[in-house]
Amino acid sequence: MIVVKFFGIARIKFKEKELHLEASTIKELAEILAEHFSVKPKEFKQFVILVNEVNINKLKMFRTKLVDGDVVMFLSPASGG
């Protein structure tokens, strides 16, 4: 299972803190999440996405492969002060 953690706006928007799902790439994960939350997959492009604390822009972006036990974090900038 892939552990998916939401922070900031992602958590507020989707009203979820953590999910456990099966997915083999970030692209597939985004599609599964899009269906789960009834949004478009491109919705997830606005977030900073980390796999095991490494930004996917340092990996293979949405083609980044996922294996059992990986932790995927969705982050977004906050604004309040």
């Binding site: 900031g8 706006i9 958590r11 507020i12 900038p77 906050a78 604004s79 309040g80 002060g81």
Partner: peptide, 10 residues
């Protein structure tokens, strides 16, 4: 930089 939303911050 510092920012907060709900019970979270950065």
């Amino acid at each position: 930089h510092g920012a907060i939303e709900g019970e979270e911050g950065q």
